[in-house]
Simulated assay, not measured.
Amino acid sequence: MKRALGSASILAAIAGGACAGGLDRTGQPIGALFEEGGANGAYVELSFAHTSPDITGTGDGISVATPIGPVDVLSSGFGYNGVGDDFWTFGAAVKMQLTEALSAAVIFDQPYGTDIAYNGSATATELGGTRAFAETNAVTGLLRYAFDPRWSVHGGIRIEAAEGSIGLEGVAYGPFNGYDVDLERDTSLGYSLGYAYEIPELALRVALTYNSKISHDMKTTENGLGAFGLPGDLKTTTEVETPQSINLDMQTGIAANTLLFGSVRWVDWSEFKIDPKYFIGTAREGLVDLDDATTYEIGLAREFTDVWAGSVAVLYEPGEDDVVSPLSPTNGFWAVALGTAYEIGDVTVSGGARYMWLGDAKPETGTPDVIRAEFENNTAFTLGMRIAYNF
């Protein structure tokens, strides 16, 4: 199989898990570790992608109980438009063959993130002004040892930097309307472990990789709890754990110049919490509550000429409970992705596009949950590109 064929299969889903699980953006790829490299056994790549979500919803209104029956505080029907902002993801990797059996790779990715902002007035809509921003950058150093042409193990250290901010605004938040928290950037360590089985003559490879959770102690500033008699600029430290995950990546040749590929990715989002000291002390619950997510992918890549290949893939993440946090107003997805790759000497240029149908969701607030809006028929579109050099 030519380099272009493998590159086309990867680029079918170039943006990884963008929007998956609400926060998953790259899928924590390690494919560079398995690249053969050029004459010196070396390989380098640079990739980037742009995702444009179209996330809209309609407010359900707010009513209160009175002795004569429910009375509307807010009428239903307010339109929440452009709730998810466009975002870029960048990636890079370098792989070196150290000995016949030992290779190493350094991979940069941006595994998790969100950029949510609700339009509307904080005093005249259910959720207007609510916002969430999070960004992570990770560098992973991996070693791979091949016992023979078929069996190998890999593992290494992941250095991750994370930061974020959240603002709760809108009548639906009651006394917490106007609360905001800033979580300063923190850098911490985790690890990855895995193994792979290959049959090179069949282009078959099955690789299983575990990524540990990473615990961040983030300097925190809370504001907007005046309704509880608390001042502003409350300084604390909040422990935030980015989740553990498992990736199963598979590929095999099924005919001349044709590759079947797929993957399964599980992320332990139910253990991801953001519990600032003063907010949890007054609300008696945390800011974020997500369900675990499993994302499936299957696709075909075909070599059309010695230097040109293309691919198509389908991705699916089943939705869980459609009652969700306003900070993550989606619930699973379907996606179709196309990729293509072209070799120019030792350089391979790849491009990909993906269209996602995001699952319907109902943002809620309060305990017990009260649905505040309906989000339906939302989508996201991603374009990406990768340049790789074998030397």
Rank of each mutant, 00 (worst) to 15 (best):
A124E: 15
L143E: 09
I274D: 08
Q244Y: 14
D115P: 06
L23C: 12
S165W: 13
G190T: 00
M356C: 12
D292L: 05
M96S: 13
D182N: 15
P67V: 07
L204C: 08
Y80I: 02
A388G: 08
L300E: 04
T238V: 03
A104G: 15
N119R: 02
P326R: 10
G57Q: 00
F279S: 01
A104H: 08
L287A: 01
E343Y: 06
N40T: 04
E317F: 03
V370M: 09
P175H: 04
D249C: 03
I116V: 10
T330M: 12
G345C: 07
D72F: 12
F375N: 07
S63E: 11
V71T: 12
L234T: 14
G352W: 01
S328Y: 09
L259N: 10
P200V: 01
S212H: 03
D275R: 13
A161V: 14
Y296V: 13
I10V: 14
G286W: 09
D217F: 09
A256C: 07
D148R: 13
N211P: 12
N40V: 02
A39K: 15
A92S: 06
T56W: 02
G164T: 03
A101W: 12
G128K: 00
E303A: 08
G366Y: 05
S103H: 01
T340I: 07
P276I: 04
A361R: 09
A293V: 10
D182Y: 05
D292M: 04
G286R: 10
G359A: 09
A20T: 10
P70M: 09
G167C: 02
V206E: 06
L358W: 04
N247G: 04
W334L: 14
T136N: 11
G339N: 02
S328P: 10
D346E: 14
L327M: 01
N247M: 06
P175F: 03
V307Y: 11
Q97A: 10
K273C: 03
A203M: 08
N81R: 15
Y118E: 04
T382N: 14
G156R: 02
T51D: 05
D249M: 04
G319K: 07
G178E: 02
I166A: 06
Y191N: 00
W88I: 06
T114S: 11
G352L: 00
L225A: 13
K277E: 12
T242L: 10
A122N: 13
W151M: 05
S245R: 01
E320P: 08
D85C: 05
T221A: 05
H50Q: 15
Y179P: 01
V288H: 05
G155N: 01
G226F: 08
E184D: 11
I298S: 05
Y191R: 02
T382I: 05
Y112N: 04
A92K: 01
G31N: 11
S245M: 00
D322V: 02
V44D: 02
D275K: 14
P53F: 00
D321K: 06
L202W: 08
A20L: 07
G319L: 03
G61D: 05
T348K: 06
E376Q: 14
Q28L: 04
R372T: 06
A337W: 03
